[in-house]
Amino acid sequence: MSLLKVEGLSKHYEGRRGIFDRLTGAKHTVVRAVNEINLTVEKGEILGLIGESGCGKSTLGRAILRLHEPTRGEVTFDGTEVTALDAAALKAMRRRMQIIFQDPYACLNPRRTVAEIVGLPLKLHGLAANDAELREKVAAICAKVGLKPGQIDRYPHQFSGGQRQRIGIARALISHPEFIVCDEPVSALDVSIQAQIIALLLELKREMGLTYLFISHDISVIGYLADRVAVMYLGEIVEMGPVEQILANPRHPYTQSLMSAVPEVDHAGRNKRIRLAGDLPSPLNPPKGCKFHTRCPLAIDACRSQQPGAETVGPGHTAACHRLAENLSLLDETQA
């Protein structure tokens, strides 16, 4: 059984209607930030969730944790339906499901010391009998993430970005959770610090038997550490599969163009660029049919009217595209 199962999960935001709109019966403007997502995460694996800004990947991570209440759909964690839990049961569940944030500056309360920030979960869940035990546990987890014991009474602004990210990781791990949503945890960091944090996350995963949903816009990072990858575009998963499959044989034209756009140190100038026309459409007014058709070089009439469903294209590998059967690749075409 999968550790985490997400079925038909949607998060829609409704625009506010003023009195005038209500009187005239105007419709709500609805932003489908996350739409009908199905996925599973196995125990001990890293599922990489990739997509550009505004594609809904962070919203999906938060909806899974019910930090943003989902509009529809079910989330099941270790046999328990998270989406059906009441407030008290959800609080207990939070100990087992945690999140690490992107911004090392915004994610720590500037008025609290490291000991207070990292010790908070112990206090909230009554996991420490007294202050001495609490400090001991805080010091232990801080040492584990690479902070010095003498630093736990300092304030966040006395640390660098990388160290702050370590504090955020310590806070997420102190209650010994099983599943962690990593929401772009290295995107805001310098290159050499990125590598440190990635190495730390992998080491902690091995040691503590963690499972990650790793959200990133960086294919290089995902390609390095994920076991499976889900590619999101405008609130929907367009392709999902084992990372080797996605890297070697991406089937959705969006995945293909995403991969060709990444500048790489190793093969400078090797891969041809797929030039995507235009920008990400506004989620307020998404295109009909396949959401990618406005930028897709392969779009045909069917793409503009019908939304493609996810089809299996290999073992554990699915993609949603009308032209899968033709086995076209943008990469081949542009190279020729």
Binding site: R62, L65, L67, L90, K91, A92, R94, R95, Q98, I99, F101, Q102, D103, A106, C107, L108, N109, R111, R112, I117, L120, P121, L124, H125, G168, R171, S175
Partner: peptide, 23 residues
Amino acid sequence: EYVEAARALGASRGHIMLREILP
């Protein structure tokens, strides 16, 4: 994000308002 972090850790609304936001 630190307010969201407190929510993710299971903090109550009172805790968030008085301990995280107020200071």
